[in-house]
């Protein structure tokens, strides 16, 4: 495989001749600022991230360092003009210290991580064979099969989670079926336990595991497996030594796409979980809406973010690596 040479610089499009003067002047000005057509295109996602991610994050960070107050908004200001010309910053670490002192938060964080981790492993175990099956099916089948994976997204997430209540509750579909089949004598308590949370999360996030796995497995060159067989590897050995290592980028991408949102999941545990299930999403909601303690709620959010930054960076590292491999 020889890489096609990519021109280092594509010639800048026409120098603007033949355009009206104001347009030419604007283009000239933008160029002088180092902004070409390409630069502007790249700018769009940056502006988007700045407006809808970085600025809200700064606001949350700011609130986390303030104190709760009975006011509108319900926290103290961070920056204050004292005397005449002195701008003082009052950083209040109270919220963070509070997170450390009250074991409730640590328990909630750990529980969230545990539930997210177990759900991710379950998604991987369920999703890998499905993605593999789709990738190995005849080309004409792949489209419809992928469509079936994506189809649930056409219904509201909330409704789908609600539907599980109907399935899992004591007099629900699942218990009735099991009773009818004679597998059990008395209805099982599944709803409002950790089991139902796992069911909900795995059900909801499975497509996010399958899609990147499929993308990786589908690209896998079948002749590599033939080569492995030719060199004496039996089918399972070839899977372990060739398919599995080459699908690691897909496994990582899928796992992070499940793990990251699952840690902060709020809807599923609050609908399907029991009163004893403590997840950080629910704690955050409580701080914000029930206690109206915005600084602590913000601190919870910031701490959660820090927990997630490591996996996100891992994700980006692997994505970069995957793109590099694809370039070969």
């Amino acid at each position: 495989m020889t890489a096609t040479p990519i021109g280092k610089e594509i010639q800048a499009p026409g120098s603007g001749a033949g355009r009206p003067l104001p347009v030419r002047l604007t283009i000239g000005l933008l160029r002088r600022l180092g902004l070409t057509g390409r630069g502007l295109v790249i700018l769009v996602p940056y502006v988007w991230l700045l407006l809808f991610f970085l600025i809200p994050f700064a606001i949350v960070l700011k609130i986390s360092f303030s104190e709760a107050a009975i006011a509108i908004p319900p926290y103290t200001a961070l920056l204050e003009w004292t005397e005449e010309a002195f701008l003082t910053i009052k950083l209040n670490f109270g919220s963070y210290i509070f997170l450390l002192t009250d074991s409730l938060y640590a328990v909630a964080y750990l529980n969230s991580l545990k539930i997210a981790f177990v759900s991710t492993v379950l998604c991987l175990l369920l999703g890998y064979p499905m993605a593999y099956g789709i990738a190995k099916s005849p080309t004409s089948w792949r489209g419809p099969l992928l469509m079936l994976i994506i189809l649930p997204f056409w219904t509201s997430f909330l409704i789908r989670v609600y539907a599980w209540i109907g399935i899992l509750k004591q007099e629900g579909l699942l218990n009735n079926l099991l009773l009818w089949l004679g597998v059990i004598d008395t209805p099982l308590q599944i709803l409002y336990t950790d089991v139902s949370i796992y069911i909900g999360i795995v059900y909801s996030y499975l497509p996010f595991m399958i899609l990147p796995l499929y993308a990786t497995l589908e690209k896998l060159d079948d002749t590599l497996l033939e080569a492995a067989a030719d060199l004496g590897a039996k089918p399972f050995g070839a899977f372990l030594r060739v398919t599995l290592p080459l699908s690691v980028p897909g496994i990582v991408a899928g796992s992070l796409l499940v793990f990251i949102p699952a840690v902060g999941e709020f809807v599923i545990p609050s609908l399907l979980g029991g009163p004893n299930t403590l997840m950080i999403g629910a704690v955050l909601w409580n701080e914000f809406f029930a206690n109206r303690d915005w600084p602590v709620a913000s601190a919870v959010a910031i701490a959660l973010l820090l927990f997630l930054v490591v996996p996100i960076m891992l994700f980006q590292y692997y994505q970069g690596k995957q793109q590099e491999a694809a370039k070969q």
Binding site: M1, T223, L224, E226, A227, A228, D230, V242, L246, Q328
Partner: peptide, 10 residues
């Protein structure tokens, strides 16, 4: 077999 695409394990 030596494959046309070489089929080396990347």
């Amino acid at each position: 077999m030596m494959f046309q695409s070489y089929a080396l394990f990347p």
